[in-house]
């Protein structure tokens, strides 16, 4: 079994240096526009910043993966085309994409550019993955967070490319790239705008002792004085269905796969992805250091469960769909 590659978030040039110094094998980032799925104010890279980041990462032996993982808009594909061309010009180690039209363009125009299939493409089975491989020569697939470990093992036995899976951070309960709940409520979606439940549509309203969190005038949650209020991501709120109110879609919780690294290795996984380009440097440092230790231990056959509750949404952890019980 090969050692797991640790792929870490770089929301900013400063976070990139922190991640590399803390032991990342690879870092990923986006350009500062709608071409990437963390199109948040204050985040991401200019072309010049990416160029400097490549020097810094490569000097430390770390790879740089550029996410161009939203869907190009009809009638306005220029920003996406430009992002792909810039990635090729700067010689990034790989580009992470979901849009078929862009994959096709990148494969034809820049045959030497290494392509990774983004989680946003939601390729959840070997037949789909093999189609992308055959058509665009993708070298790695980031698997959607809807698969169990046995399903991942089965996929790996039927494909010829690397697989990367999410190991820590915020977790979509929906198949990624196939969810437009955010645009239904706010007009902005991950696929079209690179955002989900955007901060521009969030309001916090104090009602007596309770704090209410709204997204575009819809109540996403209410917190009592002794509860820690979370960000109103629309699938992580409390709602009423079948005459009961609760976390219908998902609890406010974070994925933490430190406890199942041996199983993921055994299932043929190549790389682990840490979510959180929007997170602080301190967060990135701690998570990357912990995963560095857990991966090094796993290489020796040792299991190292690291709680990191202080870094989790709502102070809770889950292994999500990796364990069938989640479904």
């Amino acid at each position: 079994m090969t050692k797991l590659e640790l792929v870490c978030p770089a929301g900013t040039p400063a976070a990139l240096r922190v991640a590399v110094d803390a032991g990342a094998d690879a870092v990923y980032m986006g350009f500062r526009d709608e071409t990437n799925a963390r199109n948040f104010p204050g985040l991401n890279f200019s072309v010049d910043e990416l160029s400097e980041a490549l020097d810094y990462a490569h000097a430390a032996g770390a790879k740089v993966l550029l996410a161009v993982n939203t869907y190009a808009a009809a009638g306005n594909s220029e920003p996406w085309i430009k992002a792909v061309d810039n990635a090729a010009k700067l010689n990034v180690d790989a580009i992470i994409m979901a849009d078929i039209g862009l994959l096709d363009y990148a494969h034809r125009t820049h045959p030497d550019l290494r392509l990774h299939l983004s989680v946003q493409a939601s390729a959840s089975n070997a037949v789909a993955i093999n189609h992308y491989t055959k058509e665009f020569n993708i070298r790695r697939v980031v698997l959607p967070r809807v698969l169990t470990v046995p399903e991942i093992r089965d996929i790996n036995s039927k494909i010829a490319i690397n697989t990367e899976v999410f190991a820590f951070g915020g977790m979509c309960p929906m198949a990624e790239g196939r969810c437009s709940m955010s645009s239904y409520i706010t007009g902005k979606s991950p696929n079209m705008n690179g955002v989900c439940s955007p901060a521009s549509h969030v309001t916090y309203i104090q009602q007596g002792h309770d704090l209410k969190t709204n997204l575009a005038d819809f109540t996403i949650n209410k917190f009592g004085p002794n509860e820690q209020a979370g960000y109103p991501t629309l699938c992580k709120g409390r709602f009423t269905a079948n005459e009961e109110t609760g976390y219908l879609f998902e609890e406010p919780t974070s994925l933490n796969a430190t406890g199942i690294l041996l199983e993921l290795m055994e299932a043929g996984v190549t790389a682990l992805k840490i979510e959180g380009r929007q997170r602080s440097k301190a967060y990135v440092r701690e998570v990357v250091q912990n995963f560095r230790a857990a991966i090094d231990a796993a290489e020796q056959g040792e299991r190292m469960v690291i709680e990191m509750d202080n870094l989790s949404e709502g102070g809770q952890n889950t292994t999500g769909a990796y364990n069938k019980k989640w479904m």
């Binding site: 698969l147 929906m174 198949a175 196939r178 969810c179 437009s180 079948n242 879609f249 989640w326 479904m327």
Partner: peptide, 19 residues
């Protein structure tokens, strides 16, 4: 309008059942 798909069954979950 179809908005999302998951491997988790929310109907089952709302009825305190597993998929």
């Amino acid at each position: 309008l179809p908005l999302a798909i998951s491997s988790r069954c929310y109907h089952a979950r709302a009825h305190k059942l597993h998929k």
